[in-house]
């Protein structure tokens, strides 16, 4: 099975988010859920570009971004691979980045009138869902 089969990347031109960032985020969530495991190769640029009907520049930009974030590495002549322990950043820096994202989600929760307790429950729920997915992929691997 190739990575492309499992990951099912898709782009949405109506989201207003740059297309390359959509690819970056989807590969990061595939890595988090276990759909893409460390050492596995990413689809090469041309077939992925053709499948998503986007310019290869877009995919190349997404891969360059993932590489600079330390999520993937490029082995010359072999392609791009998911790195094992993928953040090169110190723990403090990683926490700081996460805090920014959490703050944004909290602001969104406020405007959507989702109270604190419900928000925290939602976070737990989403974590459970992610772990369930990880177990499913691990299970599929061991078969």
């Amino acid at each position: 099975m190739t990575v492309g089969d499992v990951m099912m990347l898709q782009v949405n031109f109506k989201s207003g988010k740059p297309v390359y960032l959509q690819v970056v985020d989807q590969i990061k969530s595939a890595a988090a859920s276990g759909a893409l495991q460390s050492g596995e190769s990413l689809p090469s640029i041309r077939p992925l570009a053709e499948e998503l009907r986007v310019n290869r520049n877009t995919i190349a930009k997404a891969y360059a971004e993932l590489e600079s974030q330390g999520v993937i590495e490029t082995l010359p002549g072999k392609g791009c691979f998911l790195k094992a322990n993928h953040s090169p950043l110190k723990k403090d820096a990683r926490r700081k980045m996460l805090i920014e994202e959490i703050d944004q989600a909290i602001v969104a929760a406020h405007h959507l009138q989702v109270p604190r307790g419900e928000f925290v429950d939602l976070v737990r729920e989403r974590f459970d869902l992610l772990e369930e997915k990880q177990r499913a992929y691990d299970h599929a691997k061991s078969e």
Binding site: R46, A49, E50, R53, N55, R56, N57, A60
Partner: peptide, 17 residues
């Protein structure tokens, strides 16, 4: 239309993009 335009552009940009 849908089928070939990305095929052509993909093939064109493959080497030395």
């Amino acid at each position: 239309r849908r089928e070939f335009i990305e095929t052509v552009i993909g093939a064109y940009q493959e080497s030395d993009p």
